[in-house]
């Protein structure tokens, strides 16, 4: 489903070049549950952003469902992000002036889904995630766990095939983090492809496939037997 071939990402800082990713080749299948680990600065976020089309590689090709997406234009990439990819961030990134329901509605609004259909889907999703009571609350009226659940609802409201999570539990306490992980893993059982970046070894160990990165390269790639 995802095929990266010789992907490099070089940042230019002043007249210095920082290679965040070097010649990474990687394939991820449909419905895989992958954790991405490694020390700070090893390139995990950079890789995740590339997979999510938030960033473009300096060299190499990226095939998504067999289609070369690395040289699509802005509008086409936006379309792919909108339809196929969901993001969950460490710091939630909810729009502060919008309610939980409106935040969840946002991707559908941007995609031009009709209003009545949006309402129904938002209500169903919030109910699923136990947030019905909180639909009209703004982010600053929610706890961290609730915020992350709203963010996951938002990431999945367009039924994406791929969910990318960059340290989704990084700002949460352990118990809340576990709840969030259960929610994400539940999505995997429904067939979503989940890539999660984490520093937490315990959380990383839950994934069937574990990638370790160092200095912009994949150090190890282990798949647990079922």
């Amino acid at each position: 489903m995802i095929a990266l071939e010789k992907i490099s990402r070089i940042f230019e800082v002043g007249d210095q070049q920082v290679a965040a990713l070097r010649d990474i080749s990687l394939t991820l299948g449909q419905g895989e549950y992958v954790s991405l680990m490694g020390p700070s600065g090893s390139g995990k976020s950079t890789l995740l952003n590339l997979i999510g089309l938030l960033d473009r590689p300096s060299s190499g090709t990226y095939l998504l469902e067999g289609r070369n997406v690395s040289d699509l234009d802005d509008r086409q990439q936006a379309e792919v992000r909108s339809q196929k990819i969901g993001f969950v961030f460490q710091s939630f990134h909810l729009v502060p002036r919008l309610t939980a329901a409106q935040n969840v509605e946002l991707p559908m609004m941007l995609a031009g889904v009709p209003a009545d259909e949006r309402q129904a889907r938002v209500r169903a999703l919030l109910q699923n995630y136990g947030l019905s009571e909180r639909a009209d609350h703004r982010p600053d009226q929610l706890s961290g766990g609730q915020r992350q659940r709203v963010a996951i609802a938002r990431a999945t409201v367009m039924n994406p095939r791929i969910l990318l999570a960059d340290e989704p539990t990084g700002n949460l306490d352990q118990a809340t983090g576990r709840e969030v992980m259960k929610l994400l893993e539940n999505l995997v059982t429904q067939g979503i492809t989940l890539v999660i970046v984490t520093h937490d070894v315990e959380i990383g160990a839950r994934a069937r496939r574990q990638l370790h990165m160092l200095d912009g390269q994949i150090l190890s790639d282990e798949t647990r037997a079922a």
């Binding site: 936006a78 379309e79 992000r81 909108s82 339809q83 993001f87 990134h93 995609a111």
Partner: peptide, 16 residues
């Protein structure tokens, strides 16, 4: 800036 980045991540093209 963050909101704009977010909207883009959620699938908004530059034109939007």
């Amino acid at each position: 800036v963050k909101e704009i980045g977010l909207l883009k991540a959620l699938g908004a093209p530059g034109k939007q």
